[in-house]
Computed example of a mutant assay.
Amino acid sequence: MKKTIFNFLLVLFLSNNTFSQKLKTNQKAVIKTTLNCDHCNECETCGLKFKTEMLKIKGVKMYELDDNAMTFTVYYNAKKTNLQAIKEGISKLGYDADEVKATLEGIASLDECCKKLD
C-alpha cells in the first residue's frame, strides 16, 4: 500500500513538473505601431511617457522602441498579462498597436508633432 501511494505521488510530481515547464512565463512580442514624427523616442512628452508608462502596463518587464521599423519589442510575464492587454495599454498611450487603434484620450495627451493626422 505504501509503495502504491509513493508511486502515485512520484508520477504526480513528475507530470506536474513537466507541464509547468511547458508554460513559459517570460514572453517576447513585436508589436507594429505608427510614429508620426521622427523624434518620438527623444520627445520631452512622448519619450518620457515611454520611459514611465510602458513599464506601468501590468506584466511588462522591458520594452524597446525601434523608431525606424516602427515597432515595440515587449518582454512580459505571461502569468500576469497577455498580448491583447499590452496592446490595449499601448493604445491608451496614444499609439496604434497592431490591430488595436490608439484611443482618442491617448492621442490627445501627445505633443502636436506626435499626434496622428487623420
Rank of each mutant, 00 (worst) to 15 (best):
K115W: 02
A102F: 02
L35T: 04
M70K: 15
V60K: 00
A102W: 03
K49M: 14
F50V: 05
K101I: 08
L104C: 00
K92P: 02
C40W: 01
K92V: 05
V60L: 00
I57Q: 00
F50G: 03
C37N: 09
L55Q: 02
T34S: 14
A97M: 04
D111N: 12
G59F: 01
T71K: 13
K32W: 06
Y95E: 07
K92I: 04
K115V: 00
A78E: 07
I90C: 06
K87T: 06
F50N: 11
Q84G: 10
C43R: 11
G59T: 00
T25M: 05
L93V: 09
A78I: 03
D96S: 06
G59C: 00
D67M: 15
Y95S: 05
K24F: 10
A69D: 15
K58I: 01
L35W: 03
Y75H: 14
V30K: 13
I31M: 06
M70Y: 12
L110T: 04
K61P: 01
L117V: 13
V100R: 01
E53L: 11
L65W: 06
L23S: 08
M70R: 14
M62P: 00
Q84F: 10
I86V: 11
E112F: 06
F72W: 13
Y95H: 12
C40Y: 09
S91M: 07
D118M: 08
T103C: 03
F50W: 11
C37R: 00
T45R: 11
T45N: 13
G106Y: 06
A97D: 09
E42N: 09
M54P: 10
N36H: 13
K101N: 06
Y95A: 08
C113A: 06
